[in-house]
């Protein structure tokens, strides 16, 4: 589904990603871990098409298409979803109104009829249960005055509404208490199928107790330096990142 080859990206002349290779197949969950500043969020942003990042080399093929050629909104309509680490506030625009615009633009692209108000609300009600989100929250301005947990829940709710093929969760666990973490993870797990895939970007192993990955990759200095199963995440939890840093550095000096 997703094939990343030798991806290099920089921002304002500083290279952040230095040759990422990653294959993601339908039905898989991949976790990307790594210390601060290793390029985890950059990878998520580049995949979603944020324009501050300049891709200097490499390719990304998503469902047979060259993802890097597509505008951000087209990537979204093709099924790439990014759950933001810091969702923005849009004053005066209710979540409901926002999502209706989004859902219908995505449907139009996919050759589906626009949902009328009734059908849209029915869909919303169904998906609201997944993340135990309150309708009152959805009639408020998008993310304005939402707590950290509410924002993240709203991200996963939007994910449920947009039915993506590839979901990228960027530090979705940050700022969540244990209950919110459980609710958000439940939502993500229920949305999993053999047709879609998930990339979980996280610092901590904690989230991976709930969203169990098939593969864990460690990103360091813009490269994937180690890949393994969920046991790797446990090992990292126990030992921290230093031993990986040392491994990489000693390899570099050899």
């Amino acid at each position: 589904m997703l094939s990343i080859k030798n991806l290099h990206a920089s921002i304002e002349g500083t290279e952040i990603l230095r040759g990422i290779n990653l294959e993601v197949k339908a039905g898989e969950v991949h976790a990307i871990m790594g210390p601060n500043g290793s390029g985890k969020s950059t990878l998520a942003s580049v995949l979603a098409g944020r324009e501050e990042y300049e891709v200097t080399d490499g390719e990304v093929i998503f469902k047979g298409k060259n993802l890097l050629d597509l505008a951000p909104e087209v990537r979204a309509r093709e099924g790439v979803f990014l759950a933001f680490q810091y969702p923005v506030e849009i004053p005066g625009v209710s979540s409901t109104n926002f999502l209706r615009t989004a859902v219908n633009q995505v449907r139009e692209y996919r050759g589906l009829e626009a949902l009328d108000a009734v059908k849209f609300l029915t869909l919303m009600k169904e998906k609201m249960k997944l993340v135990e989100i309150d309708q009152k929250l959805l009639s408020r301005s998008l993310n304005e005055g939402f707590s950290g947990g509410e924002k993240k829940r709203n991200e996963i709710f939007q994910m449920a509404m947009l039915d993506p093929t590839l979901s990228i969760l960027d530090e979705t666990d940050s700022g969540l208490d244990i209950d919110a973490l459980r609710i958000v993870s439940n939502g993500v797990n229920q949305l999993k199928s053999d047709k879609n895939a998930t990339i979980v970007v996280t610092h901590y192993q904690r989230l991976l107790d709930y969203i169990v990955p098939d593969y864990v990759h460690v990103l360091f200095k813009g490269r994937i330096v180690k890949s393994g199963t969920k046991d790797l995440a446990l090992e990292l939890e126990e030992k921290g990142y230093d031993w990986i840093k040392e491994e990489v550095d000693s390899a570099a000096t050899v």
Partner: peptide, 16 residues
Amino acid sequence: FYCNQRGIATEDAVAL
């Protein structure tokens, strides 16, 4: 960008 990432075209995002 947030709107774009949800599939909303830029002009519609500005209008919104």
